[in-house]
Amino acid sequence: MPAFTIVTTSATQDSDAAEVNTLTDDFGSETEALGYSRRMADEMLGLAAQLSLDFDYSNVALYDGDLLEEDLDPDHPALIGVWVLDEEGCSYVPAAEFRESLAEPEA
């Protein structure tokens, strides 16, 4: 079974701090890992709604491989994609598109 690493980052508006958690596990396929990461994103949104939190730059990133001991960021070549969380829900952004959005200057 292939290993995948899921990194959750949650930050609320009006806060400079972010909580980052990393999980590495074996999944049957990339599709299974993607579905699991989606459920994690949905759970984060549900928790935020219960606590009346407004997310700022929260996301759930999926990486290919057991990368628990590595420093992971969007430039890491193993990034598959990111579930971006906001007030409208979560949306999946493939790695290349996510990197492009980070490179674009904000208006």
Rank of each mutant, 00 (worst) to 15 (best):
P74M: 06
L23V: 03
E88N: 10
A18F: 03
L34N: 13
H76T: 11
T8K: 13
T8S: 14
T22L: 13
E43Q: 14
D73Q: 01
D56S: 03
S10D: 10
L67T: 05
L45E: 14
V93G: 04
A18I: 07
E43K: 14
D42T: 10
A41R: 11
D71W: 11
D86E: 03
T9D: 03
E70H: 13
A95P: 10
Y57S: 07
L23K: 10
D26G: 10
A17I: 14
T12R: 14
R39K: 12
A96D: 12
S37Y: 08
E43R: 11
L53V: 06
P74N: 05
A103R: 15
L102G: 09
F27P: 08
S10Y: 04
Y36T: 07
M40W: 09
Y36C: 04
L34M: 13
L79C: 05
S52T: 08
E69Q: 14
V84D: 04
E88R: 13
D25A: 04
L23D: 10
G81A: 02
R38D: 07
V60I: 09
A49G: 08
V60K: 08
D54G: 03
W83F: 03
D71V: 15
G28H: 13
I80F: 01
T24F: 00
A48I: 06
S29W: 11
L51K: 15
M40Q: 09
V20H: 11
H76Q: 10
A11N: 15
D26E: 10
H76K: 06
D64E: 15
L34D: 02
D54L: 00
A17Y: 10
D25S: 09
